[in-house]
């Protein structure tokens, strides 16, 4: 009895310690970055910029980041969701499905720089899209597609089969069943897929600077290049231009991520409430 208690307590200690380490590192990084950066974040830093001036504000980079997120999600989500619907609702289990699954899983494991090189050769050069928001977004779309497909697949599979039976049993068509019953139930999961994708897009540097370029200007159209916050940060730190500015940019980046996640969570819980 005593022995059991001892090992129980040890286990508990280990679990608590692990949680503290995980949470602790995260908080430490956040505090470190923000405390170093927040002093340099000013209204001017956020809104001002001079064409070609790396020392100035980061306004164009914020816009580039949001721009690329928006287009990528616009391209990747419908394709990813439709593929997942095909895989879960239509495809007969067999060789083709196995091949598609294997392909998406492999795709997810490829380092982002490889996607960057592919985008550089295919979108930037061969299709002649140059370094642009479009090239960047297309490349990132391919990169986040596996995440969208897998996460959506899981949420579709989690929809209880009795809903499908109920709908089909009423004489509803398969398409209607998917649109009216299955997709609404799977929506929170699909939203998770989008949030995860946004996270990957924001954090990406290698694939972005190879395809969207590092232009220091505000992108005025989808065919203009631009640099995202992450790419900008990479340059600030690597070239030793200004560590202060790098931390300030990181602070803004963290805030952007927090705001996006907050909005997505609010949206998810609202959808959940409507559904249950």
């Amino acid at each position: 009895m005593k022995k059991r208690n001892l090992s129980d307590n040890f286990m508990k200690l280990f679990i608590i310690l692990s949680s503290i380490i995980t949470l602790g590192t995260m908080i430490w990084i956040l505090i470190y970055v923000i405390s170093n950066g927040i002093a340099h974040v000013s209204w001017e830093f956020l809104t001002e910029f001079q064409e070609g001036q790396i020392e100035g504000g980061i306004f164009p980079y914020i816009i580039s980041t949001l721009y690329i997120i928006f287009i990528t999600i616009l391209i990747a989500t419908p394709i990813g969701i439709f593929s997942a619907i095909y895989l879960v609702e239509y495809a007969k289990p067999g060789k083709i499905v196995r091949i598609i699954r294997f392909a998406t899983e492999s795709l997810a494991g490829i380092p982002s720089i490889v996607f960057g090189l592919f985008g550089l050769i295919f979108f930037v050069t061969m299709l002649g899209f140059r370094w642009s928001m479009l090239s960047g977004a297309l490349t990132l779309s391919i990169m986040v597609l596996p995440t969208v497909v897998r996460t959506t697949e899981e949420s579709l599979k989690a929809v209880p089969n009795i809903y499908r039976e109920g709908s089909l049993g009423l004489g509803a068509s398969k398409l209607r069943t998917i649109r009216k019953v299955i997709l609404p139930s799977a929506l929170p999961g699909i939203l998770t897929a989008v949030i995860l994708s946004i996270g990957r897009i924001i954090g990406e540097t290698a694939a972005v600077f190879l395809t969207a370029g590092t232009a220091k200007a505000l992108p005025k159209s989808i065919m203009d290049g631009g640099r995202t916050l992450s790419v900008h940060m990479y340059y600030l730190a690597k070239e030793g231009i200004s560590m202060d500015k790098a931390y300030a940019t990181a602070t803004v980046l963290i805030l952007v991520v927090i705001v996006i996640n907050f909005i997505a969570n609010k949206l998810a819980s609202r959808l959940n409430k409507k559904n249950s």
Binding site: P160, I162, Y163, E165, G166, S167, L168, G169, L170, G171, A172, S173, R176, K180, V181, P184, S185, N275, S276
Partner: peptide, 29 residues
Amino acid sequence: LRKRVGMVFQKPNPFPMSVYDNVAYGPRS
């Protein structure tokens, strides 16, 4: 056929929507 031959299942399976929408689901379909 399924419009003419309806079915009630072992486990109650109302859709996660309003009572009204549940009942109106079939006719709307």
